[in-house]
Write a protein that binds this DNA or RNA. Sequence first.
DNA 1: ATCACTATTGATAATGAATATCATTATCTT
DNA 2: AAGATAATGATATTCATTATCAATAGTGAT
Lengths: 125, 125
Amino acid sequence: MIHKQKVRRSTRQRRLILDAVKDSLNHPSASDIYATLADSGIGIATIYRQLSALVEDGEIGSFEYQGEVRYDPIVQPHAHIVCSKCDKIWDVALPKGINNLAPTNDSFENFDVDLTWKGVCNDCR
Amino acid sequence: MIHKQKVRRSTRQRRLILDAVKDSLNHPSASDIYATLADSGIGIATIYRQLSALVEDGEIGSFEYQGEVRYDPIVQPHAHIVCSKCDKIWDVALPKGINNLAPTNDSFENFDVDLTWKGVCNDCR
DNA sequence: ATCACTATTGATAATGAATATCATTATCTT
DNA sequence: AAGATAATGATATTCATTATCAATAGTGAT
Ligand SMILES: [Mn+2]
Ligand SMILES: [Mn+2]
Ligand SMILES: [Zn+2]
Ligand SMILES: [Zn+2]
């Protein structure tokens, strides 16, 4: 029983939004992307819809921070460092062997890890 | 230069809210606590205010999940397992030695780690 | 116990992120 | 080119959380 693949049309809006995330450096929110594409005329609803769709399709990553969803051009698993002063976010490699440290009881099947270190960055000290 | 301690009054509302979180088992949200204390007459604004204050005072923990803040009776650092189907959350010990795996560049001072494993629980399979 | 000071409360308005609605438009298949 | 329908954009709506402010109630001093 193969799950039917949802047909996704290639629209100008989808391409622009994907490119904006792929070119981003700061884990942008939906309104960040909206601002970046301000002169494209893309509506805010489309920004939200396509960002969700792109995550669902595995084209981009996402996580929530400070009450809003942030998007990530990197889809490979990785960890983040956040500064609690300026709220900047950096990418960092997952600790080697972290998957071996997963809680292995056979009543749970792990498939994803969300790891964030919180601290104060150099600029804020 | 000691930082002046903010004076915090002991009110009936604060005590009830703290007790509700301490007695909780399901990482409740603000509205969960509001529901639990429904017959106490405590206003929703007070629920939010005191939950924030209790976190600030280190009396309870908190983290965000699925677009809302969840509160935690356990203040000691620990990790969570969440089921992406039923959204239930379990406590789990932090992997031993996780702090040694922190990204150690001297331009960043780590003091907190947020670790969540996401998967599908037994009931949902 | 009473007083004065002010932190806290509760009702409610306001904010901000995200979703729902729906007529119109654009994409894809034939 | 035509038909089917996914996608869009304007906007209304939902939902969590915060702001406002007059009234209330802890607290420390008398
Ligand atoms: Mn990242
Ligand atoms: Mn917990
Ligand atoms: Zn910083
Ligand atoms: Zn489950």
